[in-house]
Design a protein around this nucleic acid. Sequence first.
DNA 1: TCAATACGTTGGCCGGACCAACGTTGGTTG
DNA 2: CAACCAACGTTGGTCCGGCCAACGTATTGA
Lengths: 150, 150
Amino acid sequence: MDHTAPQSPAGLSTTPSWLLNQTASHAARLLSEGFAAHDLRGYHYRLLATLAEDGPASQADLGRRCGIDRSDVVAAINDLAGRGLVVRAPDPADRRRNVISITDAGTDEARRMAATVERAQADLLAPLSGTEREQLTRLLTRLLHHHSRH
Amino acid sequence: MDHTAPQSPAGLSTTPSWLLNQTASHAARLLSEGFAAHDLRGYHYRLLATLAEDGPASQADLGRRCGIDRSDVVAAINDLAGRGLVVRAPDPADRRRNVISITDAGTDEARRMAATVERAQADLLAPLSGTEREQLTRLLTRLLHHHSRH
DNA sequence: TCAATACGTTGGCCGGACCAACGTTGGTTG
DNA sequence: CAACCAACGTTGGTCCGGCCAACGTATTGA
């Protein structure tokens, strides 16, 4: 049989995008499992964490900061507000906007979730030394930076 | 929260899992766009590439090799077979199995898609030097290895 | 022989990401 | 001032990847 392996000697398993995808998928699974204990999902954590760090913001702003679509922000904020982790109030200065603020309960939850995330992180990076973790972070950051501004 | 962060937005944007997720997401978008030109998706490529490299296999085997669920393999193989890129034949030696073989057209398509993938790869890794790409690949492979043998 | 396992298949669910459209409100410009 | 365009929140979808439960058929092994 003319088993002429094209130009991919070792196939998928060495393709950077494949490796990225797989490791990211694994990381996401770890996070997702952690979040499940809080009965929340990734979107909720991103929003909560951003609110805890950067303070109140409009939904559109939140979406931009978290990389979440406006329409998806609506639903997630609904959930968070329904749990009292967040408050949605009309912006008197601009009646198109809602100002979203984190509540004390929300701050607590954010802190707990951050701990969960940190555990997942440690688990994920277990096989890497400190230097290697730094390397990885640097490389990924470079990639992200390069591609996010075009 | 103690602000141990310099001026760079702390929080999410430095979390390895976040960086992984974002870069992987970007890579997936690049690939997806490339695949769209072939009117196929990621699953199709994985299957086609695996068949081209490793030869015929049962659907269950394919699923295991590609990391695709049996049930999803069915649909994807249906698509590929419907296009004549692949042939599904009952295995005479084990009547539970279907043997999936790639056709000549399939091999061609696999080659073309591989080229597309390589372009996406180059695009993705553009900002990195050869050494850095190697570093990244090595780190990701380490992570994957460690976590895949759970 | 009978139970356990593997296979292909159907049909469903979830999470993340994205898009189009609408009505409302704000800003700009003519 | 009026007209227009842009931004906002919201609704209601689509898509893809990943996963699971269940069924009938076929195979294996105890």
